[in-house]
């Protein structure tokens, strides 16, 4: 099972953990040890995650976009983007740049007749400019232009991509929205479910209080033996989780008994005579306070 364990993962060479000043050594090593037909055509940043992003904002140009090559041997050619490659590369159509390498016989593909093979060479974002058609303000004619840069604002739901897509517009000009290219439609497979079947609503909540699903059916809907279900506490387990109580001392027992006895005693009754006496005292105090206030007002 050793090939399945991840125990040695921490000690493996991880280029992302190599400090930046030591990277050129590994880049050189990679360059020298890889034969030309495997060597990446792009400059690779070993620290960066080279995977092709899914976010259209990060991709900037999608498959089907028309672009103008502005750098390199094929400058001035207009091509279509045919696919994305790792480390931010775009593969263009036959008008794009290509490279010729020698491939040893064991790597030959079916039908290959020569050692020399021509591959499309990926281009980076700065080597291409997006091409779009805009209407001229003066002549009102449609003309094809290359866009210096694009920016993304807001989102909308795209029926063809079947996801939320950002609006792509000319940088600094929000009115000039450049639509995304239409993707090649995917055909339904034999196991696909029709959209209408999926969207048809079959379940309606009838009561907030009572569950429509019978309790016996719940086990078939939810995982009965899920590791997240820990079950309910039983009496024995509650006892295990509860520490014992400290027994009461004789002093405490006597105190509690006394308190209980005091509670049982009837409350002291206030007689009319007492009430009259208290009332008289309060009245005397009130008169005194009023007199003091009047004296203060005179001052």
């Amino acid at each position: 099972m050793s090939y399945l364990t991840k125990a040695g993962e921490r000690f493996r060479l991880d280029l992302k953990r190599i400090p930046k000043h030591r990277l050129p050594y590994f880049e050189k090593l990679q360059r020298e040890t890889q034969p030309p037909f495997i060597r990446p055509q792009l400059e690779v940043d070993l620290h960066a995650d080279g995977a092709v992003p899914e976010d259209p904002k990060k991709l900037k140009y999608l498959v089907g976009d028309r672009v103008l090559i502005v750098k390199g041997a094929k400058t001035g050619n207009v091509c279509k983007i045919s696919r994305h490659v790792e480390h931010g590369g775009y593969i263009l159509d036959e008008n794009g740049p290509s490279t010729t390498v020698v491939v040893p016989k064991q790597f030959w593909t079916e039908g290959q007749r020569s050692h020399v093979v021509t591959f499309p060479k990926p281009v980076t974002e700065d080597q291409i400019k997006l091409i779009t058609q805009i209407e001229d303000d003066v002549t009102h004619e449609t003309k094809t232009v290359a866009v210096e840069n694009v920016e993304f604002k807001g989102t909308y739901y795209d029926e063809d991509y079947k996801k939320e897509m950002p609006y792509r517009m000319v940088y600094g000009d929000d009115d000039l929205v450049i639509p995304w290219p239409r993707p090649t439609p995917k055909e339904d497979g034999p196991l696909s479910t029709e959209v209408n079947t999926v969207r048809e609503r079959t379940y309606f909540v009838e009561s907030v209080i009572k569950d429509d699903i019978p309790s016996d059916a719940l086990d078939s809907i939810r995982k009965k033996h899920s590791k997240w279900r820990r079950g309910k506490l039983t009496k024995t387990e509650v006892k295990r989780l509860t520490p014992p109580e400290m027994p009461l001392t004789e002093t405490k027992k006597a105190y509690l008994a006394e308190r209980e006895a005091k509670k049982q005693q009837p409350r002291a009754l206030i007689t009319d005579e007492m009430k009259a006496f208290l009332g008289k005292k309060v009245r005397e105090h009130e008169v005194k306070v009023i007199k003091q206030l009047e004296e203060l007002q005179d001052l």
């Binding site: 309910k232 387990e237 989780l241 520490p243």
Partner: peptide, 23 residues
Amino acid sequence: RRQEYNVGDEKPKHIPNRQLTPD
């Protein structure tokens, strides 16, 4: 603060052996 457990509550991740003295 010690958590109070009652019968029917969800089980905690670990149930220790019973504490022999009060807190």
